[in-house]
């Protein structure tokens, strides 16, 4: 009886909470297996990205673009080239940042934010995003995409994000967009375009000085 009451009371809320254009995934096990299998065949990724920060109340968009690279096991590089120069390299536990004035390297384990961003990025590429213990994950789908909705569990991370939506292409199980929303309703969308897999990406691209 209590279960029926729960279902009747919360069913409309569950429906409303679903992202527009998506429904709950029908076969989660199959998705997990295919996501992991597809990721296994990818050793390197090189892709352009476009980042759009939407400041909703201000009706402002801050656009930037750059190049993203990934190499197994644990190397990622985000280089912003316009309208500012900024380089972020994650190589295992090490993080290297170069901005207009300075360059700096440190251990990601000393910085929870970087450690978590590192883990999300690597998890997405390696097909293990659903296993990240710092987030609760709900998976939705439509005819073209899977949507992984990650909600942070850690207090420090909740301060920065309300949720992170990851849009995965059903054709090849690769990430099309990251959409990071904060509590104020603003969000940052990173869209990956011109994706190239298993091309000439070398360890030298991830040198941490």
């Amino acid at each position: 009886m209590r279960n029926y009451f729960f279902l009747i009371f919360f069913y409309p809320v569950v429906l409303l909470a679903q992202p527009k254009g998506f429904t709950g995934i029908k076969d989660l096990v199959s998705f997990k297996n295919k996501f992991a299998a597809a990721s296994k065949s990818v050793n390197t990724i090189k892709s352009d990205f476009i980042q759009e920060k939407n400041l909703s109340v201000l009706s402002e968009k801050i656009k930037s673009k750059g190049v993203f690279m990934f190499k197994k096991q644990n190397m990622a590089r985000m280089e912003y080239i316009s309208p500012f120069k900024y380089l972020l390299i994650i190589n295992g536990d090490k993080v290297f940042i170069k901005d207009a004035q300075k360059s700096n390297s440190f251990s990601s384990s000393n910085n929870k934010m970087f450690e978590n961003i590192n883990k999300i990025m690597i998890d997405c590429v390696q097909g293990t995003a659903l296993e990240n213990k710092n987030f609760t994950c709900v998976v939705y789908e439509n005819d073209k995409l899977y949507l992984l909705e990650l909600s942070p569990k850690l207090k420090a991370f909740k301060d920065l994000f309300k949720k992170i939506d990851i849009y995965i292409d059903k054709k090849d199980y690769t990430v099309n967009n990251f959409d990071m929303s904060d509590a104020s309703g603003d969000n940052t969308v990173i869209t990956f375009i011109n994706k190239q897999f298993n091309t000439n990406v070398t360890d030298a691209d991830f040198t941490v000085k």
Binding site: Q51, K53, L55, I62, S64, F84, Y86, M113, I117, M180
Partner: peptide
């Protein structure tokens, strides 16, 4: 940004958009 109601907003984010 100068807003229509004559207020001025000053917003600082990191490069990845975290406010």
């Amino acid at each position: 940004k100068k807003m229509q109601d004559d207020t001025t907003r000053v917003v600082f984010t990191n490069e990845m958009g975290i406010k």
